[in-house]
């Protein structure tokens, strides 16, 4: 049975409360609390203790992808103190300079593979160097990013073969040439099926925005479930 949910950032940029409210009527049983932007982070952290997330089987938190004014050590300290002990913390490897500070998170730290805007963490070889410095970290496999880096899905295959046992969660979206998350298309499902057999049974987090063709969260979840269960690829002709 799939554990399937959405990133709050995909539903409502910078407004996790609105996103959680939107999800209440859905059957999503996973959520990624997104604080990709530095400015969103303090508010999310402060609210963590009071949020009722009990309906979700899986909850993760996405830390800021850039931290210009927040010192890296300060950010890590806050995450360590304020994020509940069992909640995975998804990070981008690009801004990391102080590796030991992040290594102490052990397997709670979930490194996301990157898109083409980033100079590292995009391929199996680049991830290998990162995991050398973060030996216990897990992997947030972003299939949209991986497909953007290599549309043939060869690199995704290599990442899964090498790091399949590290995969903690999956990100799903279609990422276009300008690195914007887009609704899933038929071509995406073709690509997905090339590596589907290698993907472990872990929570799936959609970063796909709602669209006029698919305006409901349950509708999005239906599409992903169909795709995962090997339904006709035509199911994605939205």
């Amino acid at each position: 049975m799939l554990t399937l949910g959405i990133s709050t950032g995909a539903l409502a940029h910078g407004d996790f409360r609105k996103a959680l409210h939107m999800m209440e009527a859905s059957r999503a049983d996973a959520v990624e609390l997104s604080a990709l932007r530095e400015t969103e982070f303090p508010s999310l952290l402060r609210s963590l203790q009071e949020l009722d997330l009990s309906r979700y089987r899986y909850v993760s938190l996405h830390a800021p992808s850039r931290y210009e004014s927040l010192a890296e050590v300060h950010l890590a300290d806050q995450l360590e103190r304020l994020v509940p002990g069992d909640m995975p913390i998804v990070v981008h490897p690009t801004p990391i300079r102080n590796w030991p500070v992040w290594a102490r998170f052990g397997s709670r730290l979930c490194v996301e593979n990157m898109d083409k805007r980033n100079p590292m963490g995009r391929t199996a070889e680049e991830l290998d160097r990162i995991f050398t410095r973060l030996p216990e970290a897990t992997l947030c496999l972003d299939l949209g990013h991986a497909r953007q880096i290599d549309p043939t899905m060869t690199e995704t295959d290599l990442i899964l073969r090498k790091f399949g046992n590290r995969v903690k969660q999956i990100h799903i979206s279609e990422v276009d040439a300008s690195c914007t998350h887009r609704p899933l298309t038929w071509a995406w499902s073709l690509a997905f099926h090339k590596v589907a057999a290698l993907i472990p049974n872990v929570p799936i987090i959609l970063e796909t925005p709602l669209s006029p063709d698919c305006p409901s969260i349950n509708g999005l979840l239906d599409i992903v479930e169909d795709m995962w269960s090997g339904q006709s690829l035509g199911a994605l002709a939205v």
Binding site: V73, N98, V101
Partner: peptide
Amino acid sequence: HADDRNRASVSPPILDPSAPE
């Protein structure tokens, strides 16, 4: 204490052009 840890542990990014990789 945080500053000390910061100074002691900061390493160049993995993609530093001066890094051997």
